[in-house]
Design a protein around this nucleic acid. Sequence first.
DNA 1: TTATAAATAGAAATGATTTCTATTTATAAT
DNA 2: ATTATAAATAGAAATCATTTCTATTTATAA
Lengths: 139, 139
Amino acid sequence: MDTLLEKLKENNLKNTPKRRAVIGLFLREGASLSPCRVRILLKKKLPKLGLPTVYRILDELEKIGVLVKVQTDDRKLHYSICSMPENRHHHHFICRKCKKVKEVEYCNFKDVSRFIRDKLKCVAESHSMQIEGLCEKCI
Amino acid sequence: MDTLLEKLKENNLKNTPKRRAVIGLFLREGASLSPCRVRILLKKKLPKLGLPTVYRILDELEKIGVLVKVQTDDRKLHYSICSMPENRHHHHFICRKCKKVKEVEYCNFKDVSRFIRDKLKCVAESHSMQIEGLCEKCI
DNA sequence: TTATAAATAGAAATGATTTCTATTTATAAT
DNA sequence: ATTATAAATAGAAATCATTTCTATTTATAA
């Protein structure tokens, strides 16, 4: 938590109660959350927290690397906490039951891009992968 | 084209001018298109084509396997034609310049799911991957 | 040719996300 | 501690993709 709060300062973002609450929530939940869900879960503690504020906070936290966007089938915004050190490439596993997100430090970009080059004559520049399944607890 | 039109019949969908036009468009373009873009591109030929109709046609064509949804960063709907025989697992490469979509018959799901099982103690059930880059013509 | 269900147009609703403005607050300098 | 300042926030309103609804039109099988 403290490390994450320092990140705010490093990036000239003020340490406000709402930002702390959002970070704390993601740490507790460990799951991917939509802006709407974030608001609902913080409703009791922060009844005046507005949805636009939630959107802005999530956006800021993503920009400084505290959160990551997670792709979902419903094409809505979802974020989860990101504990991976900056710029360390990785993917995400999401439990389809409890929505917990785990970081996956496995990648085969080399093989993929070789395939793209040899078979399609194209140049792969980036890729993203989402893996869905059941986590340890939900199996 | 004829193969695709047969698919309509197989699935009890009528062979209408609008459906033919949409399929034809995707065949010509070979790129991923949003519903809005589909409408714009067909405006001249079908001035009365409504957006709700486009949405419904795209949805139907996806359900019968003529089109596939393509994931994009903007979290909007995008489709592209799918020439891969049913249920043959594959991924998609999208050119970031011209938006052309190419099917990628390469997958490393075995390795990924082994990693998920051994390192995270989770069970991977499905995954999706998008690869972005430059196609032959746009390099 | 006709009867029928399916397909469509167009208006309207929905709902996520963004923008805007006035007010409040964290923080650095005193 | 106080104060000045820019940054952060609330709340209303706008935007825009997507969906729903209803009346009308059309493809197709008999």
